[in-house]
Design a protein around this nucleic acid. Structure first.
Length: 593
RNA sequence: GGACCUGUGGUGCAGCUCGGAGUGCACGCCGGCCUGUCAAGCCGGAGGUCGCGGGUUCAAAUCCCGUCAGGUCCGCCA
């Protein structure tokens, strides 16, 4: 819990209470605010990470915001009528104070007051100041609470923490890797690991049995609100387990982390197959906190005369209260659907009908029979004032477009509880084909197919299901995992399915395939995105808010100025020459300061 | 690679549609007054290449083009 104060101070600002009245205490911190009342009275709000304490000081002190000071005085109960219920220390104050300025400070570049939302680039440029804010203090402490709970859970389940290399070997395929030039072998490179995937599998061959690591992963892909170049995963792998045991370990760890922050263990995770998630929610990371599920209307429109609905599939959803949307808003929805790849979008308002029933208001209603209209309303369980959105298209596209519209229209902020964990299982082994018609690995090429689907690996690869699974929290993908292939002949079949030749496989993953000859146990694992988990628990929609020193969307660090050009001497030492077309970072190129 | 939004004293905003003197608000900053405040209060003051470049115009923060930076998203993230 709270550490004992030591060194220059006897106490922390935010922890002093009525019970401490009469004690002579020393506190240290930053000047949060001062209120001066002439030459001989001023109030000084002193801030450390625990909170704020009011100190009554002689007005003659030259104290400014963010000065670092040590205050020694006697704690007393505040005079009648001057308590401040909005402070945890609001019943007490420090008086007869001696103030030592440990360090003066320039005025801060922005207010640390939580009421003012400062532009993020300013906060990032002066991140060391921003970190003093209540928000960042709380977020980083939430993060530490989460990682601590995850470690405890993993160790409680017998997992061994093992570190894996940051300087790894290129394994083309997958996400783009950051390259590190070798000084000792010019022209050769390490890469930073996009995850410790292969290393942890090798640890299983090595008899570690249960491995975990709070691991930094690095991917040179474009950044997003929920994606940074470098991010942190709870990475784990276990031997002699089925996917159910892996999921139980993961769910226990995540539930404990949630409980450590919220005080409450979440309900057990739902389980959905990938196919069911797509059918009901139109995405592979369903947000099951709200309804608006997708409905199959194919049977309603089996014989329809409406050409647009004579399609491979007709899916719809019902947006409660959406009939109030104006025409401009509806047109925007149609455009959104087209932007997502749909041929079109049909909207229908549910309005009062003759004789007290329900009717549809839509440009296409004249093409629909009475039976179809009734069937539609029944299938969607629509009520007066709702808006029905329908897409007719190829099945998967219809589902995916409506799934996105469902999120656009109905989704609460990610951090709004309840915490609804959801396993999505039975992913396909391959997901579509590449430009040359070869199947693409949906997860990664070491994922074990379902045994009953093995015989279709060559004849019908796209129908093969994998022993892989994702964990979803409130519509955010928290992580994914799988049972791995541990037998060489299955691995070769999957490589064959992916169009990877024996020679290619040997050059890319030869060391892994070699290892598998020497007694690889059945094994599987998972990785949990800690930044995302913490962001949700901290009530943030952006993982930058739970990372001490994040990068901007263009991959820059406004505080340090990284990335920067290397000196010619440094480049020469690494045996590198920057191509003249490399842009502003090239030697001699323009570069802002 | 693409779409959309944003850029105005240190900070947060208004001004931009419909061009007319850097005009305004709040916080902060500097100076003065003030012995119970807590977003203290009162008085005075300083502080601006309106992101940058070009164009249109008698005249541009405002209209047009380009560019840079930040954000959200698509592509991308096995």
């Amino acid at each position: 819990m709270a550490p004992a104060a030591a060194g220059l101070r006897t106490d922390f600002c935010g922890r002093l209470r009525i019970a401490d009245v009469g004690r002579v205490v020393s506190v240290c911190g930053w000047v949060a605010r001062r209120r001066e009342h002439g030459e001989h009275l001023a109030f000084l709000d002193l801030r450390d990470y625990t909170g704020i304490l009011q100190c009554v000081v002689d007005g003659a002190h030259d104290l400014r915001a963010e000065y670092v000071v040590r205050v020694t005085g006697t704690l007393r109960r505040r005079p009648e009528g001057t308590t401040n219920p909005s402070l945890e220390t609001g019943e007490v104050e420090l008086h007869e104070c001696t103030v030592e300025v440990l360090n003066a400070a320039d005025p801060p570049p922005f207010s640390l007051d939580s009421r003012v939302e400062t532009d993020e680039i300013v906060r990032l440029r002066y991140r060391y100041v921003d970190l003093r804010s209540e928000r960042m203090q709380k977020n980083l402490r939430t993060r530490a609470t989460v990682t601590s709970a995850l470690r405890q859970a993993m160790e409680g389940n017998g997992f061994l923490e093992v570190e894996t290399p940051l300087l790894w070997t290129p394994t083309p395929e997958g996400s783009r890797e950051f390259a590190i030039p070798s000084r000792l072998q010019h022209g050769s490179f390490y890469v930073l690991p996009q995850s410790p995937q292969i290393a942890k599998q090798l640890s299983m061959v090595g008899g570690i049995d249960r491995y975990y690591q709070i691991a930094r992963c690095l991917r040179d892909e474009d950044l997003r609100a929920d994606r940074q170049f470098e991010f942190t995963q709870l990475d784990l792998e276990a031997s002699f387990v089925t996917e159910h045991e892996v999921q139980a370990f993961v769910e226990d760890a995540v539930a404990r982390a949630i409980a450590a922050v919220t005080g409450e263990r979440p309900a057990p995770a739902l389980r959905l197959s990938w196919a069911e998630a797509l059918e009901r929610y139109g995405v592979d990371k369903p947000d099951v906190r709200f309804g608006m599920e997708l409905v199959d209307l194919k049977s309603v429109f089996a014989e329809t005369a409406f050409n647009a609905f004579r399609s491979d599939a007709v899916r719809a959803l019902c947006f409660p209260g959406g009939a109030a949307l104006g025409r401009a808003r509806l047109d925007a929805l149609v455009e959104r659907a087209k932007g997502l790849g749909a041929k079109g979008l049909v909207w229908m308002r549910v309005v009062p009908g003759d004789g007290g029933g329900l009717a549809l208001d839509s440009p296409v209603v004249k093409f629909l029979s009475d039976v179809e209209q009734t069937g539609l309303l029944t299938a969607l369980d629509a009520s007066l004032g709702d808006l029905i959105l329908a897409v007719a298209d190829e099945r998967r596209r219809a589902c995916e477009v409506l799934g996105q519209l469902r999120i656009d229209l109905g989704r609460p902020p990610v951090y709004e509880g309840p915490w609804r964990l959801c396993w999505v299982v039975d992913f396909p082994l391959f997901d579509g084909v590449d430009d040359e018609g070869r199947p693409q690995a949906a997860h990664h090429p070491f994922t074990m197919p379902r045994p009953e689907d093995l015989d279709r690996l060559v004849s019908d690869p796209l129908s093969v299901r994998a022993q892989s699974y994702d964990l979803v929290l409130n519509g955010w993908e928290l992580g994914s995992g799988s049972i791995r292939i541990h037998r060489r002949e299955i691995q070769e079949q999957v490589f064959a399915g992916l169009g990877i030749t024996r020679e290619e496989a040997e050059s890319r993953f030869g060391f892994l395939l070699g290892a598998f000859r020497y007694g690889a146990p059945p094994h599987g694992g998972f990785a949990v995105g800690i930044d995302r988990l913490v962001a949700i628990l901290a009530g943030e929609e952006n993982i930058r808010e739970v990372i001490a020193f994040p990068k901007t969307q263009s991959g820059a660090d406004p505080m340090t100025g990284a990335p920067k050009p290397l000196t010619p001497a440094h480049l020469a030492e690494l045996g590198l020459r920057v191509a003249p077309t490399a842009g502003p970072n090239a030697p001699g190129g323009a570069r802002r300061g």
